[in-house]
């Protein structure tokens, strides 16, 4: 039986989550999302008109297998994030929220202090909280303590396509976590995604690498396959890495 990913009360067949920014049209975004077979798609609240049923981005995401994950991109404080989440819940009829608080507009690096504060409050308000954070194992445990349903550490600065630069810390997070670990930023190639899955990440979130490629639809499919391959490899238990060939037992053969 396939080992399904479960976040809060929802089960996911696909372990690939997609972001909707940077595509050259909403139609292209839709085609890429469909090709990826992703079931969880995140979109920035600041980009959509929540009170307009005809909103271009939302209209293109209306498929029964796609769950919409609004994110708070653009907010700078916990207070703003809580306010944005409340608006989203009311207008979009979902209590899921991807918590992104990045007061630094250049590298969009998450503010750990505000994120922890907002996460605690949002959990109390009944949200399923998915926080975007640094690959900080202690912060992950603190977030787990306040009741988040998963953690989303970054592999590299968002949009950088540099891969798993935070590998050492991601491995510790995966080792210690009691909630799903979703690697959120910096994944720039299918091989990065496969690697993330091989080290035991529960899912990955990809946006720039798909949206900005020459062929977003084909790239979305490539990521789908990479995530599946990586996961399968993880579940099949990778053979250990060895630095030299192992001969028969020259040191202990005398025992025979």
């Amino acid at each position: 039986m396939k080992n399904l990913l479960k976040i809060a009360n929802k089960e996911f067949t696909s372990r690939l989550f997609i972001g909707t920014g940077k595509f050259s049209s909403s139609k292209q975004m839709q085609e890429a999302v469909l090709a990826s077979e992703s079931e969880l798609v995140t979109t920035a609240l600041k980009r959509i008109d929540m009170h307009n049923a005809e909103d271009d981005i939302l209209t293109h995401l209306k498929h029964t297998h796609i769950n919409l994950l609004p994110n708070t991109s653009g907010v700078r404080t916990a207070k703003e994030a809580v306010f944005a989440a409340a608006l989203a819940r009311e207008a979009l009829d979902t209590n899921w929220i991807k918590l992104e608080i990045h007061p630094d507009p250049r590298y969009l690096l998450p503010d750990p202090i505000e994120t922890l504060k907002a996460a605690a409050e949002l959990v109390k308000l009944g949200f399923v909280v998915m926080p975007y954070i640094h690959a900080d194992p202690v912060l992950c445990k603190r977030l787990e303590d306040v009741g988040v349903q998963c953690v989303m550490p970054l592999g590299a600065p968002i949009g950088s396509n540099k891969g798993l630069k935070t590998l050492e810390f991601l491995e510790i997070i995966i080792e210690q976590s009691n909630v799903p670990v979703i690697i959120d930023a910096g994944i720039g190639a299918p091989s990065h995604a496969a690697y993330a899955m091989e080290i035991g990440a529960d899912a990955v979130l990809v946006n720039t690498a798909i949206a900005v490629s020459q062929n977003p639809v084909a790239m979305a499919k490539a990521f789908k396959m990479a995530v599946e391959a990586g996961r399968l490899g993880y579940e099949a238990k990778l053979a250990p890495v060895k630095n030299q060939a192992e001969a028969s037992s020259p040191l202990t053969s005398f025992l025979n």
């Binding site: 600041k46 708070t72 994030a81 809580v82 608006l87």
Partner: peptide, 8 residues
């Protein structure tokens, strides 16, 4: 549109 005022 690429902004929303999320101040409370």
């Amino acid at each position: 549109k690429d902004w929303s005022q999320f101040e409370a």
